[in-house]
Design a protein around this nucleic acid. Structure first.
Length: 385
RNA sequence: GUGGGAUUGGCGCAGUUGGUAGCGCACCAGUUUGUGGCACUGGGGGUCAAGAGUUCAAGCCUCUUAUCCCACC
């Protein structure tokens, strides 16, 4: 009567990539899967119905943000996150560990936990591993994350080791505090860009792996090749009986490369963020819809897409909406982008089932024109003003 | 007709005691990776209403013309 279980349904004979089904209390998730991000208990600009119709099987929400507003008690009293936001498929909450990283100017880290200053009003807060789990217990997502420290790209081995070890000690505390069987706690492998540390982090995490494991600390500003290399390194070391979640990735090309390297789950703000700023992913590559060349382009954004925006609107109209800053523009591009990515994931799963993911990748690069190599992942931590 | 004010990139405007032009918006392009962002970065485009003069040098001074605005007759 396990609440969670993972079954591998197929392994691509040529690439080794796998498909699977992750059973959760709120339904099954077919992997590999992309998870749209809904930080504040909403995938920005979209209704749950739209998110579901786009093909989402699971979405993310964020502990740090919901703790600050409206507060986990409100969410709990509302009946939990699923009821609160009107989404009854699986939800994953990030622990707030990443905010420790990205809000670096406003924090103080100690063995006990992290002292933050709220980015909203400057008030001080303390989040320990126990507190992070308590908040996530109250929020009530299906999958919850260990409270970790995500270290920055470029730090030295000594610092990376200390950080990794702290994350590991925090993991133990998270694990011991967490009691709710309805929620799967995923440990997070850290270790920066040092293979020995990654291996050690994985080894220290294994005792706490029940339903899944995550890879954190990647996609933080390194060249893509470095991320791929680390995934490659970890691929056969990760426990095969649970899903592997790569945190914070990514763009369509990164997603394919990650799946080829053993990743089953991913999330990223990219599709919804760039949508709000006027960029779309399409079957022929990235399109900055705001650009002047679409002014009189009365064709759909992506003829291969069957989302509402592509069925009803032209590029000229979408460009107009974006240029005059109409809400519908960002909404439609958000809808399109997650539809595109979720369709991409479905295609990837299909390709794996037919043992042709490697060919699929080649076709993908040919059609979209993405650079296979060398592009750098951008990430900048915010400064407090 | 008289008096006053104005005329600087597409639009709206700055331009100090004269030394070869800036800003906002618009336009153009790029960026965005466990969301402090509907944000950020960069770019093109004026010879300053027209003409003449003073000066080593004029958008800034003088004169003429044109157009517009406001008063007054």
């Amino acid at each position: 009567m396990a609440k969670f279980s993972y079954e591998v349904t197929h392994i691509d004979k040529n690439s080794g990539a796998r498909t699977g089904i992750f059973h959760t209390p709120h339904g099954d998730i077919e992997t590999p899967i992309f998870m749209p991000v809904g930080t504040q208990a909403t995938v920005k600009a979209l209704s749950p119905e739209e998110v579901e119709r786009a093909g989402s099987q699971i979405i993310l929400a964020n502990t740090y943000h919901l703790y600050l507003r409206p507060g986990e008690k409100i969410v709990k009293d509302a009946g939990g996150l699923h009821k609160f936001m009107g989404w009854d498929k699986p939800i994953l909450t990030d622990s707030g560990g990443f905010q420790v990283f990205s809000l670096s100017a406003l924090r103080k880290i100690s063995e006990q936990g992290v002292e933050f200053q709220s980015n909203i009003d400057g008030s001080r807060h303390f989040i320990s591993p126990e507190k992070a789990i308590q908040i996530q217990n109250d929020l009530g997502a299906d999958i919850i994350m260990a409270f970790d420290e995500c270290s920055a790209y470029g730090i030295d081995h000594k610092k990376a080791k200390e950080s990794m070890e702290l994350t590991s000690r925090w993991l133990k505390r998270c694990y011991e505090y967490h009691k709710n069987e309805e929620q799967a706690l995923f440990p997070i492998v850290q270790g920066n860009f040092y293979k020995d540390l990654r291996e050690k982090s994985l080894e220290l995490s294994l005792p706490y792996v029940k339903h899944g494991i995550a890879i954190g600390g990647l996609s933080v500003g390194e060249p893509k090749e470095e991320m791929y290399e680390m995934l490659e390194f970890l691929k056969d070391k990760l426990p095969k009986e649970v899903p592997h979640y790569l945190m914070g990735v990514g763009s369509p090309d990164c997603i394919i490369e990650a799946v080829l390297r053993g990743v089953d789950m991913m999330d990223c703000v990219l599709p919804t963020r760039i949508a709000r700023n006027g960029t779309a992913y399409t079957s022929t590559g990235k399109v900055v819809v705001r650009n002047g060349c679409y002014k009189e382009d009365y064709s759909p954004l992506d003829p291969e897409c069957d989302c509402y925006a592509c069925k009803h609107f032209t590029k000229a109209y979408l460009r107009h909406l974006l240029n005059v800053n109409e809400i519908l523009g960002g909404r439609m591009l958000s809808l399109h982008n997650i539809t595109y990515l979720l369709k991409l994931m479905a295609d990837i799963r299909q390709a794996i089932k037919e043992d042709r993911l490697l060919e699929f990748r080649e076709e993908f690069y040919k059609k979209t024109g993405y650079d296979k190599k060398l592009s750098k992942i951008t990430f900048q931590t915010k400064k407090s003003d």
